Simulated scan of single mutants.
Amino acid sequence: MSNLNGAYYGPSIPPPSKSYHRHGRGSSCNPCSCLFGCLCNCIFQIIFTILIVLGVIALVLWLVLRPNKVNFYVTDATLTQFDYSTTNNTLYYDLALNMTIRNPNKRIGIYYDSIEARGMYQGQRFASQNLERFYQGHKNTSYLHPVFKGQNLVLLGDREKTNYNNEKNLGIYEMEMKLYMRIRLKIGWIKTHKIKPKIECDFKVPLESSGRSVNFDVTRCHLDW
């Protein structure tokens, strides 16, 4: 075999292959985020449990007590004076009312700690009176006797004055009485905190005059908690 002159070029040697190691993507938990998530979950479970317990307690109390709405009525009204002077915008009035409060509940008593009665005419207050406090027992009917007598400044617009003149000609006036109360409920030996209900009574009362029979329709009042 003859000798080969010059350099010999054999097949190229491939470069060494680079191997890449891909780390696994397993879930890892940051201690702070894990602690926060567990804390939120515990708080949610506690709140949910408390709501369930309160709901069960409320249901049991309702089944045991069976609370019923207290009813307020204006049973009678006597109006002997109701004169409005356009000269000095003064209303002269003499109004006496009889009211009943019916507590139909068997296990709930009511402390009436304060009662303010307000006489209203066409949205304007013309008189107020503070009534005596009292306690009302179970399935009991109590009586109130607010009396409004005197004179007071009442500003009526043209439309209200027209309404007054129309009612004066008819001899029947549309009025409203509001009761502002602070009460407490007594359930066994437990007394609740003070509640402030508002009672609104809309009624029509005829003006008494000599030789004229006067009838009054019993009016049920609206209770707003």
Rank of each mutant, 00 (worst) to 15 (best):
R22F: 10
S142E: 10
R102K: 08
W225V: 12
L65K: 08
V64Y: 14
F216V: 14
T141Y: 05
I50S: 12
S12E: 09
R25T: 07
V214A: 06
N103Q: 01
K178G: 07
K191D: 07
L170S: 15
F72P: 04
V53R: 03
E174L: 05
K191P: 00
D202I: 04
N215M: 11
I52V: 15
M1N: 06
K198I: 14
P14L: 01
I57K: 01
G211D: 08
K168H: 10
V53H: 04
V214C: 03
I57T: 08
W225N: 11
C221I: 08
A96Y: 02
S85Y: 12
F36D: 01
T141W: 05
C32I: 10
Q151V: 00
G188K: 11
N103K: 04
L54S: 07
V154G: 11
Q136T: 08
G26H: 06
Q151S: 15
R66C: 05
E132A: 15
Q124G: 03
K194A: 13
T219P: 09
Y20D: 08
L97E: 03
E176R: 11
K178S: 12
R102E: 11
Y8M: 08
V74I: 15
Q81P: 00
G55H: 06
R102W: 04
L156E: 07
G150Y: 12
S209A: 14
F48Q: 08
S210P: 02
G10D: 06
P146A: 12
N140W: 07
F126L: 03
L153K: 15
C201T: 13
T75Q: 04
S28P: 00
S28F: 07
E116C: 04
I101M: 00
F72A: 07
D94S: 13
S12D: 10
K18G: 04
P104N: 02
L35C: 14
T141C: 04
L65Y: 04
C32E: 10
V205F: 01
T78N: 03
S85H: 11
V205I: 15
C32P: 03
T86D: 00
N169E: 15
I13N: 09
I43A: 15
T100C: 02
P14F: 07
I50V: 15
E176W: 00
R133F: 08
V147N: 13
I187V: 15
S2C: 11
S213K: 12
S2Q: 12
E174K: 14
R118V: 06
C40G: 07
S142Q: 09
I110K: 03
L144M: 12
S209M: 11
P206A: 11
K139H: 10
G6I: 01
T87G: 02
L35Y: 02
G6S: 02
M177C: 13
R212Y: 03
P16D: 06
L179D: 08
E116D: 05
K196D: 11
S114K: 07
N215W: 01
L35S: 14
Q81W: 01
D94K: 07
L51G: 06
P11V: 04
Q136M: 14
S209F: 04
Q129Y: 02
C221P: 07
R159D: 12
W225A: 11
